[in-house]
Design a protein around this nucleic acid. Structure first.
Lengths: 351, 351
DNA sequence: CTGAAAGCGCTAACAA
DNA sequence: TTGTTAGCGCTTTCAG
């Protein structure tokens, strides 16, 4: 910057001002400075600026896996919302491992992000402490924790599945199985399974049809293997609710390989409204948790928290929506539209 | 750090040493320091350390889209390889837009990464200049550019598709169509299409069966729409090669909806070896470009370049491999194994 | 093994 | 509108 200042015949402070849009600098001077900077191949050093200004323009975010379209959508919503205001997302993934999350959070906090977004509401005690003491906005997503660390943008995975089961039971299904959600590491998966169990108990139905999916995230292939196990062990099952659309699609293919008609012989439902759900034959009955919306709302919330528009933590409830498909037929009941997409109420105070 | 020093009764320099593993510090002193740091909730400030030490431990990376399993795999390979040595990947996505890439690269370079990985070999002139002048290792991936900026870890998309067409022609296919690769923004897609055209010309076949896929990345849905167009316009097509497995799967579903047998009535091939390729019914004949391996190799190369083990830029050729599936049958020819995975030659000098 | 001094490249705060 | 001074929180360098 000193070099640029010299070349432009001004002080480095003027260069600093010229390089930012906000400050008041004579237009000619600014032009000369920008020209000099370009000529010299000067590249601004954000590290030094961050140290001095105590603003890094970093927002940290952790997701369980980068190879998952749902979380990728959330990251997109988040990044797009924040990039517009000059923030850079510092992303890390935890491999669905809370210990790994702890390491990652600790490392990310060293970079002095101005806010941090984490996935899920369950963390190690140390992670919670680190986050709580970081002195920056914390947003937990994809869940509705009982004791939020700070803000939340999410939904209850258990409630979403429970509501789905309610619909299926009302439609006459009785012998319903749940595929996946057995791995403790995937807390959202276990929550969905819990919602299934709760719903079945509520309706007085047998909830013993539980099929393990393996290590998270359950791939299509594992979904197929689990479906094979189910068909061998409990062939009279009427409906399989899967922990995700990927597992559901794998399950669907297993039926196709065996020549079983879906949904006639056995119905299948998923979770996540992944692309595959809308294009497979048949399409998948699933639940849309609005992943992109989660990211967008988190970004919005963070911006508000940082500029003082929003004071104190907020709980933003996302309303997952059932998307009927061909893999598990439901009589249409509610004529619901996309509640969250544009209209849903913002930050209904606390839970 | 001064606070910790005071609490531990040492100078801040000793704290600095204790906090790093390398430096020589009395074990008791170190323990006392770490204890004090924990008690005080001290969090190391990487920004200040970066400024002074002129080492940010950042490696920048840009990918076209975060919602793409192929690129996500590359990022995983990269991150895993680099995290082991304490580097943090600073990730951004370009939306398949070179202008956006330019903005992103400029922004990332301000963070003073120690190396930068970009996707593809085509960039704006300014991006090239920025990268070339950055004074850090530059790695272009997923391509084999004619004029690399620095190092390369990739393969020729055109050659890969050409080789695939060769195999299909040898197997007797003649009326072959190509789906996608029409959007200039997706340079890898256009390269694949070019490989198709080149191969068809070479074999004296009609290469006019080109079906537009729309804006990249082509989704499954767009693949289905394009397939519908193809079936309407050129119903006698024997084989459709798609720009990606996602498009190929969409195309497959369109056939299923129309009751057309794949591969009997029409054969379909994809590119990318996405998860869907291995599980769909039928499985997809595709090309595996070893996305994870690309990331892993890039990480390896960067580490070598940074610690001086490797001197000067390197071209690492990845050898994509045909994966025969049920969607387009091929008589088995080569009994090739996974050339790249473990063994392939490293950095065969220049291209 | 430990400490003191200096400074990384920028910007806040103040002055002109 | 521009400049001066000081210092962000670390680590390099040198000395002990």
């Amino acid at each position: 910057m000193a070099d640029v200042a010299r070349a432009a015949g001004v002080s480095s402070m003027t260069v600093s001002r010229a390089l930012r849009r906000d400050a008041a600098v004579n237009e000619e001077t600014r032009a000369a400075i920008l020209d000099a900077a370009e000529r010299l191949g000067y590249v601004f050093d954000a590290t030094a600026a961050s140290l001095r200004a105590r603003r890094t323009d970093f927002i940290a975010a952790t997701i369980p896996s980068i190879n998952n379209a749902n979380f990728a959508d959330t990251v997109r919503g988040l990044t797009d919302g924040l990039a517009a205001r000059g923030y850079q997302v510092l992303l890390g993934y935890t491999n669905y491992d809370m210990a790994e999350e702890e390491r990652l959070v600790e490392q990310l906090l060293r970079r002095r992000p101005e806010a941090i977004v984490v996935t899920g509401g369950r963390h190690t005690a140390r992670t919670r402490t680190l986050l709580a003491k970081a002195g920056i906005p914390v947003v937990e997503t994809w869940d509705l924790p009982d004791e939020p660390i700070g803000s939340v943008v999410g939904f209850s995975n258990a409630d979403a599945v429970e509501a789905m089961v309610d619909r299926f039971v009302a439609a006459g299904f009785r012998r319903i199985a749940f595929l996946g959600g057995d791995a403790a590491r995937d807390t959202r998966g276990t929550d969905r399974r819990r919602g299934f169990l709760r719903a079945m108990a509520k309706h007085g139905l047998d909830a013993a049809r539980l099929i393990a999916g393996g290590t998270p995230p359950i791939s299509m292939r594992e979904g197929a293997a689990a479906m094979a196990a189910l068909l061998d062990r409990l062939p009279d099952t009427e409906l399989v609710i899967c922990v995700s659309d990927l597992a559901a699609f794998g399950a669907l293919t297993e039926c196709q390989r065996r020549g079983l008609a879906v949904p006639e012989t056995i119905a299948i439902a998923g979770f996540g409204d992944y692309d595959i759900a809308g294009i497979s034959v048949p399409t998948l009955t699933t639940i849309d948790p609005f992943p992109r919306e989660i990211g967008r709302r988190a970004a919005e919330l963070i911006l508000g928290l940082l500029d003082g528009t929003v004071t104190g933590p907020r709980i933003v409830a996302i309303m997952p929506q059932l998307r009927p498909g061909g893999s598990a037929l439901l009589p249409d009941a509610d004529g619901a539209g996309r509640a969250n997409a544009e209209t849903a109420q913002k930050s209904p105070s606390a839970p």
